[in-house]
Design a protein around this nucleic acid. Structure first.
Lengths: 337, 337
DNA sequence: TTGTATGCGTTATCAT
DNA sequence: ATGATAACGCATACAA
């Protein structure tokens, strides 16, 4: 592999001059610039990334921590982030934590080992005290996830209010016994949602169903399990709040395969407004998140921190959500959409 | 940030000895080893990745090129690959090409700049002659995509036969006018599938419908567009071969929203056996790929090339597919599943 | 405008 | 068993 030295020799100039050409710096005669460009072409020269990183102490790379990429929400998030980052000349490393606090910490190590310049955490299962120490190795920004006590930029929705509204909607539709079926027991987000859910119940004077407090529902098959649990153990349940459209879809699918009618026997709300929520029959009432906007802002905030270290103050960016009313909860009004 | 030098000083030893401890090499007294370990802990020392890479000429990182991560097939693929790679201590960089030949080449540059040790191409829109030159910078392996003329390991299914079988199935179900609606016009895979599709038509003496030769159908909304195109322009069509379950889902959704019955008026086959193909009503006949197995094998083959350069010969690993018969094509027999 | 010399943090070679 | 030194490829301060 050709090095900068080889190029310099072939062009009959010094490494420094070659370096100037590579980095588009001034003070190089057009004639010599041409000679160097030609030499680089002839040798098929490409700057060695590791050497550059070592010298410049920069990687132009950011890590994005998220639970699993097969979750469409995170798939969309990472796609948007990658796009935005590349506009700034940054690469993105995808880090799947699978809700493991150990993996989360392992990936934060990328910051210490200087493999990345900054980290976006869209997965958060550790306590702030365990994350904070890594701040000294580079900036960290939260996206989607958030925590009151952290002193870093956070880009997210108000999940508590969103869950509250979803629960109120179920109650307004006449649901009397609403089950809570969410996932990621460790997630701080889950805690926020549950708070909102509980507040709605309290406001309407309905008790929380302790007997079916599900914290392991993440995907379609979990949704199916939840339905069977409801049918066999708690058939009086007439409404379910789920943490994702996938869980909702699994639930509805199984309900339809049995003798249950959705929403008449069981109303279901999802979360995220994924494609599947629209494709299901009935379509799924869900909460839409402004994924692209959050992704863009997150990348922008992080890169600004990298470009101007210590410049801007930690700030929260709260994005609006929207409860999309569809047929899986339509127990009272006329058909929606 | 602490360096190996700092650790050496604190422990009162040389960098060399510290390095030995870091890399678990012999010839270090247990006592000194302890001293060094303690010093590392005290300083919060972590080896600098860039320096290591520069020195060792290895990154322990591989790049995976794929069209888009939001396509569930690739989401599953990358998830499995990442898992397998991490077992070998390798990191994975996700590179979305979005079917752009320029991006594909840009990402191959990662090999030349030594940002990665090897590349897995699950996206392939360039000709082999444009890819081959990068081989001298490191090993490349194809996954899912394949090309007859390439002399590198390829892990894939027989897409031609799979498409053939799907088309035959439609024909056997009595479809007389079958549309072809696939995506990625540049993909070599697409060409293979089309071949199989055409062979089936010919075998059954049916003409190819030149008038509706769709090569832009990739996601759900494309599927919806395809249906509207069929209804308004080619209502005589009674069967569709799609390149993905998402397209099939969009098609079926729109058909159901109109007055068309699936499969009576229009039979539809998908591809990939994604979750959505099972959730749709009717469920979607589709082709299952052994994603995990292919992902695992691909990573294994690539890493073997890295560990034993030039050792094993290029080889093809062809995995079996399976046509899953479901309700979206059930025009003749009793209900399936 | 161009070149020389130094160092980024590691690891490998060769002494001791 | 331990240490001094060079080298990986590049970019920069400084000199010319």
């Amino acid at each position: 592999m050709a090095t900068i030295e080889d190029v310099a020799k072939l062009a009959g100039l010094s490494r420094t001059t070659v370096s100037r050409v590579i980095n588009d710096q001034p003070y190089v005669t057009e004639e010599k610039r041409q000679r160097i460009v030609q030499a680089m072409k002839d040798l098929g020269y490409v700057p060695n990334s590791s050497a550059r990183r070592l010298r410049s102490q920069k990687t132009e790379t950011i890590a994005v921590l998220l639970p699993r990429i097969t979750n469409p929400f995170f798939g969309n998030l990472i796609e948007a982030m990658e796009q935005k980052a590349s506009e700034w000349g940054y690469q993105v490393i995808v880090c799947q934590t699978h809700h493991s606090s150990k993996k989360e910490i392992d990936y934060l190590q990328l910051l210490k080992t200087k493999q990345v310049d900054g980290v976006i955490m869209a997965s958060l299962v550790n306590d702030w005290k365990d994350v904070e120490p890594y701040l000294e190795s580079g900036p960290i920004v939260f996206c989607n996830e958030y925590m009151e006590d952290a002193s870093i930029p956070m880009i997210h929705m108000d999940h508590k209010t969103a869950a509250y509204e979803a629960a109120v909607h179920l109650l307004e539709q006449g649901c009397k016994h609403i089950a809570y079926a969410s996932g990621g027991p460790e997630s701080h987000l889950g805690a926020m949602r549950k708070q909102g859910f509980l507040e709605a119940l309290e406001e309407y004077g309905r008790p929380f169903l302790e007997e079916i407090n599900i914290d392991w529902a993440i995907d379609v098959s979990d949704g199916q399990k939840v339905f069977h649990l409801i049918r066999s153990e708690f058939p009086y349940i007439d409404g379910v709040f789920t943490g994702s459209d996938e869980v909702a879809a699994g639930l509805i699918y199984e309900a339809s395969s049995s003798d249950w009618q959705v929403p008449e026997d069981l109303a279901v709300v999802g979360f995220d407004n994924q494609m599947v929520s629209l494709l299901m029959v009935p379509s799924v009432t869900t909460i839409q998140q402004p994924v692209i906007q959050m992704a863009d802002k997150t990348v922008e905030v992080l890169i600004q921190q990298l470009l101007h270290p210590g410049a801007i103050a930690p700030k929260r960016y709260v994005y609006p959500h929207q409860l999309l009313l569809r047929n899986s909860t339509k127990r009272r009004e006329a058909a929606i959409q």
